[in-house]
């Protein structure tokens, strides 16, 4: 019974995990990402230091850590978005579906169609309507089929729990929505191209508590179909909506385990000090 107390999640999510609270190194059958000895530099500064981690498929993995610990950078290394910043360099490998994302014959655009991303600041395209925003990824990637587009539009908005709120306003500008709706619109936009993974970079940090809860609920629903990696500053959020938690500190992965384990009995002292809010 005591083991269950730290858990702030629903039974649905947790039952299995609780049965073995002390052997919780995640050991998925087939990880979504196999990260091996990944290091990353901005110029001369090493931002990610030799990280090895297997990110489980169809689970929510939270990445926590203080500002500047490299958690966002690590997330971007998973779909090569870090390459937008000039003078970055990566060593090591990220295996995704059996392929190293960093092998020279891999096109980052193709990677990003399979590994979607949602950002901290909601960013619907200001010139586009709600519908256009959802479909922009498909259209600009060459999909012309009207029926398919309409079907994806409704499906994506439904999955993003936004359909009922916007179905009569699909022609209105995306930026006319509230902050929380805009973020769900961005999630709909990301899932419209049917990726396998959703990377979320502090998706709720700019939202009010109610909008935040809606996003968290959405994450819990989406994990049936997607592997989700979420970077968050909010430890309660990590403990509420993730299955596994990785703690980063100064570019290094300090601890990776079952979320219940991390928040009830972390193995590493640095993790304990960080999550309990002690002086570092």
């Amino acid at each position: 019974m005591i083991e269950t107390l730290p858990a702030m999640q629903t039974t649905r999510v947790r039952t299995v995990d609780f049965m073995q609270p002390l052997t919780d190194q995640p050991q998925p059958d087939a990880p979504a990402f196999g990260v091996k000895n990944l290091s990353m530099w901005y110029g001369a500064k090493e931002a990610i230091k030799n990280v090895t981690i297997d990110v489980p498929a169809k689970r929510v993995t939270a990445i926590i850590g203080p500002s500047g610990c490299g958690k966002s950078t690590f997330l971007r290394c998973l779909n090569r978005m870090h390459e937008l910043v000039p003078r970055t360099r990566v060593e090591g490998e990220v295996l995704f579906a059996g392929q190293n994302l960093y092998s020279p014959d891999v096109d980052p655009a193709m990677i990003r169609r399979r590994i979607g991303m949602v950002f901290q600041k909601s960013n619907p395209f200001p010139t586009m309507s709600i519908a256009e925003n959802v479909l922009v990824g498909l259209k600009l990637n060459g999909v012309r089929d009207r029926n398919l587009l309409n079907e994806r539009l409704e499906k994506s908005l439904r999955m993003a729990a936004l359909w009922s709120e916007v179905k009569d306003d699909l022609r209105k500008p995306g930026i006319s929505l509230s902050g929380g709706q805009q973020q769900r619109l961005c999630i709909a936009r990301a899932i419209a191209i049917e990726p396998e993974v959703l990377l979320m970079d502090e998706p709720a940090s700019a939202l009010d508590p109610i909008a935040t809860m809606k996003i968290e609920e959405l994450i819990t629903e989406l994990k049936a179909n997607y592997t989700i990696v979420i970077v968050t500053h909010n430890m309660q959020q990590a403990s509420r909506c993730s299955d596994f938690t990785a703690f980063f500190y100064m570019g290094a992965l300090i601890e990776f385990a079952n979320t219940a384990k991390i928040f009830s009995n972390p193995t590493r002292r640095q993790t304990e000090d960080y999550i309990t809010g002690r002086f570092g």
């Binding site: 005591i2 107390l5 730290p6 430890m235 309660q236 403990s239 991390i262 928040f263 009830s264 009995n265 972390p266 993790t271 304990e272 999550i275 309990t276």
Partner: peptide, 12 residues
């Protein structure tokens, strides 16, 4: 304070 880890265990 929403305690976690050792703090949570102590309070509980």
């Amino acid at each position: 304070f929403q305690p976690v880890a050792s703090d949570l265990r102590r309070v509980v």
